[in-house]
């Protein structure tokens, strides 16, 4: 069966997509694009969690699926975060008519 994929490969994939997400966060100016890049980062972390859960061993007393549980809750958090983020972006968009982060200029910073 699928027992021949090394753990490392999943980790490489997660690390690569995490780095891509980080680059996206830093490079993009549009707030929605930044939000998408953040989602990529969260997904990368989720892959890590599930891969470690599948390949690792759980200590006794610990939850037998803590990695999966973390992933489930991270998906929840991501959904909430996107909702909140889009609300904030729409609010700012109505004030400035732009969704670019560096156009907002009411604060000196």
């Amino acid at each position: 069966m699928s027992h021949d994929i090394p753990l490392n490969w999943f980790l490489y994939f997660a690390a690569a997509s995490f780095s891509i997400g980080l680059i996206g966060v830093l490079v993009r100016r549009n707030a929605i694009a930044v939000l998408m890049a953040i989602e990529i980062m969260l997904n990368a972390a989720n892959i890590n969690f599930v891969a470690f859960w599948r390949y690792g061993e759980t200590p006794p007393g610990a939850s037998p699926l803590s990695g999966v549980m973390v992933a489930v809750f991270v998906i929840t958090v991501a959904a909430a975060e996107v909702a909140v983020g889009i609300g904030l972006i729409l609010l700012c968009y109505r004030r400035w008519h732009a969704a670019d982060v560096d156009r907002y200029d009411s604060l000196s910073g």
Binding site: A31, L91, L107
Partner: peptide, 29 residues
């Protein structure tokens, strides 16, 4: 609010990746 949100969620994504590595190292949360 938007700046707080962007910085905050990027930082929590970084934090989460750190947590995942820690979970991988120890096998527990």
């Amino acid at each position: 609010g938007l700046k707080y949100f962007v910085y905050g969620s990027v930082s929590s994504a970084l934090f989460l990746f750190g947590l995942s590595l820690l979970y991988g190292l120890t096998g527990t949360t």
